[in-house]
């Protein structure tokens, strides 16, 4: 790994962390969403570096594309409400930060003390995890989970429609009239 590589990856990592922190701190939901898109894009680049081009493109299209667009739609629909910085739960903020710090320290300790078997990144062959290979694996070995996920998406779609549907007063009246 060259120095340029280290600088490149380090830069990407810093961008990812900064965008995540920015998403976290920004009072406006719109900006938060945009920072998250940036974060997702950065991660997608890292996926490429990890030899996962298919996942990287899916990340960009599905996550940064579809899902975040959906977020923006909803934010636009509900109005970009700005909530006050007041914290109604006593001790929540302190405890959250303390626990977060402990958490991250623990994970770091894991990386230091429990890293048996972790080697430097391997040089990857060109066709490892090519879309073709993933497609073959997905439609042979993982066919059943794939179908299950399809059903989950279908039911989620129906669920979203049902949840957001507005009861029409006229139909309610008709139902009452029948009784």
């Amino acid at each position: 790994m060259t120095l340029i590589g280290i600088i490149f990856y380090g830069f990407l990592a810093i961008v990812a962390i900064v965008s995540a922190v920015a998403m976290l701190l920004n009072r406006s939901a719109i900006y938060s969403a945009l920072f998250l898109v940036l974060n997702f894009a950065t991660i997608a680049v890292l996926y490429l570096a990890l030899g996962a081009p298919f996942i990287a493109f899916t990340q960009v299209t599905v996550y940064a594309g579809a899902i975040m667009i959906l977020f923006l739609f909803v934010i636009a629909l509900l109005g970009a409400e700005k909530l006050s910085g007041h914290e109604p739960i006593k001790g929540q903020r302190t405890m959250a930060i303390v626990l977060g710090l402990i958490f991250v320290v623990e994970l770091v300790l894991f990386l230091i003390f429990r890293n048996q078997g972790i080697q430097p990144m391997l040089a990857l062959t060109q066709d490892f995890a090519s879309p073709q290979k993933i497609g073959i694996a997905m439609f042979t070995q993982y066919l059943l989970p794939f179908e299950v996920v399809a059903f989950i998406l279908l039911s989620a779609t129906i669920g979203a429609i049902v949840l957001t549907r507005v009861e029409k007063p006229a139909r309610l009246g008709a139902a009452r009239g029948k009784k």
Binding site: I6, A13, A29, L83, Q92, V108, L111, N115, I118, P120
Partner: peptide, 29 residues
């Protein structure tokens, strides 16, 4: 580039996510 680098990044992002859930009141965030 060591694998630990990516894992550390993953850990930091995860903790930031947790903090977001714990600290923000906006349901969308």
């Amino acid at each position: 580039m060591p694998t630990s680098f990516f894992l550390a990044l993953s850990a930091i992002m995860f903790v930031l996510g947790i903090l977001g859930v714990l600290l923000r009141r906006n349901a969308l965030v």
